[in-house]
């Protein structure tokens, strides 16, 4: 497992890095718009109407943005949690913790991809 984790480390780090860079911006703006501005009535009522939002999301660029929004923060979170676990408990359990966390991130990304393809 140690060898395998070393082997995938570059790609995990890339996803993590993009999670920090792009994921954080996307997720923050998402929460800002959908979680705060919308409920406060600061967004025009029909701006996020179902049909319109669907068309936006189904556009090729929209799909890409949605995938980044779903997948990248998952990898960022998984990698952060793994390093948190190492910081608290050392490397003893990493052979279990890392595959579980990265597995969850991969599953979530796949589920997101699946949903986005079907938009």
């Amino acid at each position: 497992m140690h060898r395998f984790l070393l082997r995938i480390e570059p790609i995990v780090w890339l996803l993590f890095g993009q999670g920090v860079l792009i994921g954080t911006i996307l997720l923050t703006s998402w929460v800002l718009v959908v979680g705060m501005l919308e409920p406060l009535g600061l967004v025009p009522a029909d701006a996020l109407a179902y049909e319109r939002a669907l068309r936006l999301g189904a556009h090729p660029i929209g799909r890409l943005v949605l995938l980044a929004l779903i997948a990248l923060p998952l990898w960022k979170g998984a990698h952060h949690l793994r390093h948190l676990a190492i910081e608290f408990g050392g490397h003893a359990r990493d052979a279990v913790v890392a595959p579980v966390l990265y597995g969850l991130a991969a599953l979530g990304s796949l589920a997101g991809l699946f949903a986005i393809i079907r938009l």
Partner: peptide, 11 residues
């Protein structure tokens, strides 16, 4: 850099 003690361990 990618082997044991990898640079990617840096947080």
């Amino acid at each position: 850099f990618r082997g044991d003690g990898t640079v990617f361990s840096c947080s």
